[in-house]
């Protein structure tokens, strides 16, 4: 059952199917980042689902979201064994790192996740997203910086995460009253893509 290919294999005979888990603190934009990924899938003509999970707090609690992108209709939208795990804080790392499927890929904000990855059966990409955000006047954009890294490592394989699709997705996700923020988001994604 397990696929051995690298990040986001696309093509071949097997239908495309990826389960993505994004996790961090509430307020970091975990749900928003998931929404952008979901829209990328939608714009690429895939079946998609986005399912948030968070506590009653507005900020500071833990938040995670399940994103499924697939050629086939999506059964359970809840991701319990992610192919791709985007991790934005320490508690989420501890909670979910063992659930990633063997051969899966993990994206880590190493500013906030200080733990070492002991697993050898997953590909790990770490960048100091929160530190980069602070240094580059992109406060609150560490989610997009980490997503930029994700897009970079995935774009070779599929058009779904090309900058063009990503821009289209951002236009769908950013409310019409805040369109000026699209540019900042793109700047953050470009920064992540360079890392």
């Amino acid at each position: 059952m397990q696929k051995k290919e690298k990040v986001l294999p696309h093509g071949g005979d097997a239908p495309y199917k990826k389960e993505i888990l994004l996790a961090g603190f509430g307020g970091q934009g975990v749900l928003f980042a998931g929404k952008v990924l979901t829209y990328c899938g939608l714009l690429a003509g895939k079946e998609v689902s986005w399912l948030p999970s968070y506590g009653p707090e507005m900020r500071g609690g833990t938040a995670n979201c399940s994103v499924c992108i697939s050629d086939d209709p999506i059964g359970s939208p809840l991701v319990t064994k992610p192919d791709l795990f985007i991790c934005m804080n320490g508690p989420s790392f501890d909670k979910f790192i063992d659930s990633v499927v063997p051969g899966g890929t993990v994206f880590i904000d190493e500013t906030l996740v200080t733990q070492e990855v002991s697993r050898t059966d997953v590909t790990v990409y770490s960048i100091p997203a929160a530190a980069l955000a602070a240094e580059n006047n992109l406060s609150g954009m560490s989610n997009m910086i980490l997503l930029g890294k994700f897009f970079k490592e995935s774009a070779e394989e599929t058009e779904m995460f090309s900058m063009e699709t990503v821009k289209g997705a951002l236009e769908k996700c950013v409310p019409s009253t805040k369109t000026h923020l699209i540019e900042v988001n793109i700047r953050a994604i470009e920064l992540g893509r360079k890392k």
Binding site: T38, E47, S49, W50, L51, P52, I74
Partner: peptide, 9 residues
């Protein structure tokens, strides 16, 4: 709650 909060096309 799952259907209430999820998004899909």
């Amino acid at each position: 709650g799952m259907l209430g909060q999820m998004m899909e096309p």
